[in-house]
């Protein structure tokens, strides 16, 4: 119990020392969104990979999945920009941070549009590849923010 409270204490103190505002709940939110986008992207990659395995093109449900992932990425972009506006610093610089956030936002929709022109399994493979690219971008985003 002592250990638990001790860790909680340093965690809060650490957050206060690192952040400029004492009650910044957006920090944990950004981490949560990064995890959520990564998990959703990997799930989408597996789903579209499975569709390709079954020799199927992307269908309406896949596009709904892509929309969900993109909405999460958009939320991440907004929270990231608000964090920068509040004076938080990205470890590798705000230009790189915002560039990666924009890349993360457009990765899956761009692959989705391409798959509209290719109504075969290869459209599904491309969306799966786009989702993997997004997952990789999320790992890089975490490094860029935390250092």
């Amino acid at each position: 119990m002592l250990g638990a409270t001790g860790r909680g204490g340093t965690g809060l103190a650490g957050a206060r020392a690192a952040g400029l505002s004492p009650r910044n709940t957006l920090g944990p939110m950004l981490v949560a969104l990064t995890v959520a986008v990564s998990v959703a992207a990997l799930a989408l990659a597996a789903w579209c990979g499975f569709a390709a395995y079954r020799d199927q093109p992307t269908k309406d449900w896949h596009f709904i999945g892509m929309a969900v992932v993109s909405v999460l990425a958009l939320a991440q972009l907004v929270v990231g920009i608000v964090q920068l506006a509040r004076g938080e610093q990205a470890d590798e610089g705000s230009v790189i941070f915002v560039s990666y956030l924009l890349g993360a936002l457009f990765a899956v929709p761009a692959a989705g549009f391409l798959s509209l022109s290719e109504r075969t399994r290869w459209g599904s493979v491309t969306v799966a590849a786009g989702a993997v690219v997004l997952a990789v971008l999320e790992v890089r985003l975490h490094d860029i923010w935390e250092g």
């Binding site: 990765a107 761009a110 692959a111 391409l114 798959s115 022109s117 290719e118 075969t120 290869w122 459209g123 493979v125 491309t126 590849a129 786009g130 690219v133």
Partner: peptide, 15 residues
């Protein structure tokens, strides 16, 4: 060139 596997190729080159 952008058909079948070519679509995946052009996507990766684009990225």
């Amino acid at each position: 060139l952008v058909r079948g596997p070519g679509l995946l190729l052009v996507w990766l080159y684009g990225v």
